[in-house]
Design a protein around this nucleic acid. Structure first.
Lengths: 235, 235
DNA sequence: ACCTGAACACCGTTCAAGT
DNA sequence: ACCTGAACACCGTTCAAGT
């Protein structure tokens, strides 16, 4: 990669020299950008680096360790360019959308690490920005902590879900077939509402669904504000 | 299991005779009730049945096929005893809680199948009950479909998340250690709010967190009702 | 018709050995 | 100090063979 001056055609393994956490993480992100289901195995990372797969154990305790660092990098990347808005709702919405979008650029990382807490720089940036927005709204202390946790885990769980759907890929289409087939064996008359709406529901893309649920959540938070302070109401 | 009359001490493998989808699914649920991380492999299911692991392929196309049937059974089990309330909010809340609780009795199934659509009996029961509650609230057609999808995927994604946490088990405790350790290397002064609330947030158990987020979501839906019909308002 | 068992192409991880 | 490579205990799945 550095100098392709001489014999550029032999695709044999580069010598693995100067591995480091940074170098390894970069290679992982290169692999994780793809939507292939198992792109992040040690063996594939090793090949990408031209190193023996087990060399990674010199720099990371185990796969979990690697994954947490990877997840934090991805979150931090999603936070790049974030600027708080004057509106706290707009800030919350922005954060909840950009964090998810950041993760979904690396679906592998999202599925594998969505339920882990990284406790590294990127996560702290996200938490601090969320809490700042909630403070501006008037939520403090324990109340702010509860709402932040609800929002963060809403985002993380749904992001893991979405990443899983992306990685399933073509299998989702198989699902559509199964849908039609499996209806044959079931007494459809018992489920009139479900049968009537089934295609309308299937049409909704996951992104739109997340956005819509997020708006419901934000409305719920806003409504809570009304209850708390009783000074201002928003429809 | 059927008759322990003679030689009950030899734990050698029962002969595998009369395997069927039903028999296999029962064995799977027995295994999946545990919190062991990899309890649902074909090899372990085979051992539980006293059959060769590959015998399962005679009854299920692949692991995915098995998982979908398993997931639908678990959902159906969660729906047992459901009775719609006069209050549509109470009905929605009940459905969103019982579906998750049903899945979490079989964490293996929940992690592996949360993002799949089963299109079998249990799922239809759930969808029908949700739509019925939404209709009673006054949501119809496309609007009901959108809200149902938001609710269902909120529940499914969070349930997959929760099941993952359960399966992580002791690793969560490791996280707590990591939390303290990793704070050493970071300039804490840059994240005052995050640092101040970190322990308050960590204390919130996942169940409570889900319940709280669910209330926010329900409040958001109720608020939307106000916008729609303009006839009745609820704080 | 149904079950078995060897085999294939994968996993994460450990450990003695090389340099 | 860092990387290698054989090995271990696992995966899901295929396929020829048994009964």
């Amino acid at each position: 990669m550095e100098s392709t001056a001489n014999g550029a055609r032999t695709p044999r393994r580069r010598r693995a020299q100067g591995l480091s956490r940074e170098v390894i993480l970069d290679a992982c992100l290169r692999l994780a950008a793809e939507t292939a289901p198992d792109a992040l195995s040690f063996r594939k990372i090793g090949k990408e680096l031209g190193a023996d797969p087990t060399a990674l154990y010199r720099h990371f305790a185990d796969k979990d360790d690697l994954l947490l660092s990877l997840a934090d990098r991805v979150l931090a990347r999603g936070m790049e360019g974030y600027a708080p808005s004057v509106s706290w709702v707009a800030s919350l919405r922005d954060l909840m959308l950009r964090a998810r979008a950041g993760f979904l650029e690396y679906p592998q990382v999202a599925t594998l690490a969505a339920l882990r807490v990284t406790r590294q720089e990127g996560e702290l940036q996200f938490v601090e920005a969320m809490l700042a927005a909630l403070h501006r709204a008037g939520f403090k202390g324990k109340d702010a902590a509860r709402i932040h946790r609800a929002c963060a885990d809403f985002m993380l769980s749904w992001t893991g879900f979405s990443a899983g759907l992306l990685l399933l890929g073509e299998k989702s289409s198989q699902d559509d077939r199964a849908w039609v087939e499996s209806y044959a064996g079931i007494s459809v008359g018992d489920y009139p509402l479900a049968v009537a709406s089934v295609s309308a529901m299937a049409e909704i893309p996951d992104d739109e669904n997340y956005t819509f649920a997020l708006e419901l959540l934000l409305a719920g938070i806003a409504a809570r504000l009304g209850v708390e302070s009783l000074t201002e109401m928003n429809t």
